[in-house]
Design a protein around this nucleic acid. Structure first.
Lengths: 118, 118
DNA sequence: TTATCGGGTTACCCCATGGTTACCAGGTAA
DNA sequence: TTACCTGGTAACCATGGGGTAACCCGATAA
């Protein structure tokens, strides 16, 4: 499963913390994956859905709406037939990419490490 | 109604993805915070607990055990009286720090952005 | 004797997360 | 006429993550 960072309930948690601030954005399940795939250029709904194996349409919709609300991605409907919808990163979204890349980089090192020690 | 290919639940999700791989480590609530505070040097249980306002003892224990199991942190009991326990990052843990720093950096930029636009 | 402190563990419970399924609308292709 | 495409939405439901509170041990302090 993908990430889950639920910080709900009874944790007023001073959101002055930049770490929590940022994790609030890429905290939902699949969120980093969505941003990651969009970092390669605009993608359509169904493209993302197949890009990210295992994600449900519902989740994808949810995450996309959420990221749009937060100003991370841009949603554009194109008057094709059938109408297609394209998602792309905003400037804010681009800002997130280095962080995701850093995570991916660690992921690679983890895999090497596992491969070596396992 | 052609056959439906329902890939059921808990999609096997190829954990070959370095992103998900890494997010699996820092995915739990508070996890990045714990690593962040340990990146400043070894800390004791109660120190971490007050470092991270809002975390419960249970969660802190859970996360610390989890991170220990994953080889991210080291737990050392010192024979003081009462015995004290020190947690520190392993090499693997150190590897995660740049990723956290990248996230923190974005967090800072988010705050600036909000301050400017709000 | 009782309280306190460090460092937890355990039991109990809630509700948010996310999966599944069904369904929709408009347009077009067979 | 029916089927099917894209891009969803709505209803339902199970899981488990995480909160709260109570308790534990051994040692020292009042």
């Amino acid at each position: 499963m993908a990430l889950k960072i639920t910080r709900n309930k009874a944790a007023p948690l001073p959101e002055t913390c930049p770490l929590s601030e940022c994790m609030a954005i890429l905290g939902g399940a699949w969120t980093p994956n969505v941003i990651w795939y969009l970092s390669g250029g605009a993608r359509r709904f169904n493209e993302l859905k197949t890009d990210i194996p295992g994600i449900s349409a519902k989740m994808l919709t949810t995450r996309l709406r959420e990221l749009e609300d937060k100003g991370v991605i841009l949603r554009e409907v194109r008057p094709t037939s059938p109408p297609s919808v394209e998602y792309s990163l905003t400037d804010l979204g681009q800002d997130l990419v280095p962080a995701i890349e850093a995570i991916v980089a660690v992921g690679h090192r983890l895999k090497k490490r596992d491969g070596a020690t396992a």
